[in-house]
Computed example of a mutant assay.
Amino acid sequence: MDGTETRTEAPGPAEEPARRSDSTRAAILRAARDSFAAEGYERATIRLIAREAGIDPAMVMRYYGNKAGLFAASVELDLHLPEASYLPREHAGAVLVRHFLSLWEGDESLKAMLRVGATNPAGAERMRSIFRDQLGPLAEALSPDPEEARTRAGLVASQVLGMALCRYVLELPPVAALSTEEVVRWLAPTVQGYLAGEVPPPPPGSE
């Protein structure tokens, strides 16, 4: 030993509040994920989540504004999209529509996220990031021109999200009454064109 000492400096005054803030946010998000998973979006409450996190409900509101904002921050959604290498290119539209129907019907969190995304800016951004990050690479792999991938992914999202909104949130009678195979029959050709078709020519009279 050379007699020197290793000293660990105490956190500065600005670091302690930041650490407490990070710890509080982490506790809130953990409690929110557990509550939303156990109770569903409608039954989970800010008060319940705050109690599980061991904090005052006002702290939840301070960090996330309201339940919709908290849900958007806490939800972790995986679309479980098929790998492009295993997706038959000529039938990609049908496979993808059938996949999304199965996904919407089996995941209440996804339906709740759709409702939140339609009314809450944080929810809307969360939905954009989910579809951008997960659907974008698939569209890029299937597109005849990778530079068009973002546009194609956005158009596919417009179809599957529009169908989900009408079928599962608004429960529009003609759409909600369709069988899975009927939805696939109507929607798949459009999604197929968006994913792998050629860019359509300009409509007559547009030039």
Score class of each variant (00 low, 15 high):
E207N: 01
M163L: 13
T6G: 05
P137K: 00
E15S: 15
A27R: 14
P121D: 02
A122H: 02
R62T: 15
L178R: 08
S85P: 08
N120I: 04
R132P: 00
T45Y: 14
A141Q: 02
S109L: 03
A124G: 13
P57F: 09
R47L: 12
I46Y: 13
P204Q: 01
A141K: 01
D107H: 13
A157D: 04
S143C: 05
E125P: 03
T24S: 14
I130A: 01
R167Y: 10
Y64S: 04
A188C: 04
V169W: 10
L79K: 04
H99Y: 09
A92D: 06
A68R: 11
R33P: 15
R7I: 12
A141H: 01
G154Y: 03
M127V: 08
Q159A: 05
L96H: 11
A176M: 03
L161K: 01
R19G: 12
F100R: 01
V95R: 11
R25K: 12
Y168P: 02
T24F: 11
D56I: 11
D145T: 06
G54M: 09
P11V: 13
S23I: 09
R115T: 13
S179T: 15
R25G: 00
M127W: 00
A10M: 14
R128S: 08
G54N: 07
Y41I: 10
F71K: 01
E147M: 06
L165P: 00
R185A: 07
E76N: 06
L77A: 08
G65Q: 08
P13I: 15
Y86C: 06
E52A: 14
D133P: 02
D78C: 05
G3I: 03
L79H: 04
L135W: 07
W104Y: 14
Y64H: 08
L114R: 10
Y64V: 00
R115P: 11
G3M: 10
L77S: 06
A177P: 07
Q134T: 06
S206V: 01
A32Q: 11
L135K: 03
A26E: 15
I55S: 09
P189G: 05
F100H: 04
A18F: 07
S74V: 10
A177F: 06
L170H: 02
L48F: 05
A27C: 07
E76Y: 03
P173G: 05
E105P: 11
L87N: 08
T180Q: 08
I55V: 15
M59S: 13
E90V: 06
A50R: 12
N120F: 01
L114C: 09
E181Q: 12
E171G: 01
P13F: 15
P137L: 00
L114F: 11
L48E: 15
L170P: 00
T45M: 12
M61I: 14
G117V: 08
P82H: 10
R115S: 14
L96I: 14
